[in-house]
Amino acid sequence: MIAVLTKIGQSVLDPLARMGRANLFFLRLLGALSFLLQRPGLLVKQLHAVGVLSLPIILVSGLFVGMVLGLQGYANLVDFGATSSLGTVVALSLVRELGPVLTALLYAGRAGSALTAGIGLMKATEQLASMQMMAVDPFQRVLAPRFLAGFIAVPLLTGIFTAVGILGGYLVAVVQLGVDGGAFWAQMQAKVHFFTDVVNGVVLKSLVFGVVANWIALFEGYEAQPTSEGISLATTRTVVSTSLAVLGLDFLLTALMFGVW
């Protein structure tokens, strides 16, 4: 009986303690960011790892998502004779939702998992401990540059994804299906608002997702059991928790930004 109660208590306390550790981790991460003012070069290498290397998947996915939106939008709008609104449909879905969300999900799979595995491996091979023994703080030298690079990369990737997606929609709608190009752009510009759609969707959402995705990835890596199973488990957890967090937060942000109360 006592054992069961202990177990129940444990299953409540453990996630709570983990949450606490994650928050402390985040604070230390923020505290270590100022170190990058002295060593901006560290950022470049990480921007390459999380940004440049994520480009191919972002470009290809963005193009295909945009093309699918163009096709589906056309198939539905053609019944109402409203194919001239296709530009609006494609652009609004990408700018408000698909751009930031899909970019964050792809980022978690491509860069987030790599961050977790990298940090976990550094932990397992005692690289973090040896760094501490050399009086170098891993938060400053290893984690902060990765975090800031990811924080910068996600909005940029989101912008690229969205722009390429709209281009994909344009290719299908205008080039392939013969929708009027002028109407495509004009309707889009008339209905997509800079502050409510572009700033809220592409910029603000991606900034939030950037913080969350990189925070989770680095924390999972730092907390990983220093064994092969531990690292692979942590990598999986990064992708799963980031996806859930991004989708949940997206609902919250959408309700706040575009909510019709």
Partner: peptide, 14 residues
């Protein structure tokens, strides 16, 4: 990335 964001601002939005 910045070019994409500018494009979104200028070409796509109002």
């Amino acid at each position: 990335g910045l070019a994409a964001l500018f494009l979104l601002a200028l070409k796509v939005s109002d």
